[in-house]
């Protein structure tokens, strides 16, 4: 058997995927053939280089972003259930038109009330930790997430503030904001000072804001 035969098996030999007789033959060939041994060494260097490759650091906007998108999707799924439920009552009426309209109006009112409750409840149940009020000043080096739990009475001003923030702030927060509705805003990837400043502005408008640390600086 010539060198071509053995060279095709070098990868399997390196990964210890050859059986015992094949392995022995390969070892004998490598001892007697300098060219194949050189190729084997180079292959091994390549594999070692890749196996010891340094890992990239995890981006905070990724950590915060996927969680907020899952929560958003979950919230929409709950709302979607309500919409389906309402549509059931919007089928061609079995009773008189007036009676059906009455039922639809009642269902709509009920759904509206339930819908608001689910939105509130989901915020409370899916973000139990985020409702804790952390002191940003104690850990200015950390990366924060702000969550607007309630916009208060000045919803439009809060939304305007978020739009302006979106235009001026660093990209990390924008990446997270891209998938958020301002009404249920989650703003991630903020440095301590930025988080504190935005929190104060939002609270001045009457919004209720919850703070969460999403990443800490390594020592």
């Amino acid at each position: 058997m010539g060198c071509d035969f053995y060279r095709k098996q070098l990868t399997a030999y390196l990964d210890q995927e050859l059986n015992a007789p094949q392995k022995e033959r390969m070892a004998q060939h490598l001892q007697s053939c300098q060219a194949c041994r050189n190729q084997y060494d180079e292959l091994q260097n390549t594999v070692n280089l890749l196996a010891n490759a340094e890992k990239p650091a995890l981006a905070p906007q990724f950590q915060a972003g996927w969680r907020s998108r899952i929560r958003q999707e979950n919230l929409q799924a709950q709302k979607g259930f309500l919409v389906t439920w309402q549509s059931f009552f919007k089928q061609p009426p079995l009773f008189s038109i007036a009676g059906s309209l009455g039922i639809i109006v009642i269902c709509f009112c009920m759904a509206f009330l339930v819908n608001r409750k689910i939105a509130d409840d989901s915020l409370k149940t899916s973000h139990p930790q985020s409702l804790s009020q952390l002191s940003i000043k104690e850990s200015p080096e950390a990366v924060y997430q702000l969550e607007i739990v309630k916009t208060g009475k000045q919803t439009q001003k809060v939304q305007q503030l978020l739009r302006e923030f979106r235009q001026t702030h660093e990209e990390g927060a924008v990446l997270a904001l891209r998938y958020e509705k301002a009404k249920l805003g989650i703003i991630s990837g903020l440095k301590g000072a930025e988080a504190q400043a935005l929190k104060e502005k939002l609270e001045a408008l009457g919004a209720q804001v919850a703070v969460k640390i999403v990443a800490k600086k390594r020592n």
Partner: peptide, 12 residues
């Protein structure tokens, strides 16, 4: 205009 970095943390 950017490539977001992984925070202030680099393992290298």
């Amino acid at each position: 205009g950017y490539e977001p970095l992984a925070g202030d943390v680099t393992p290298m």
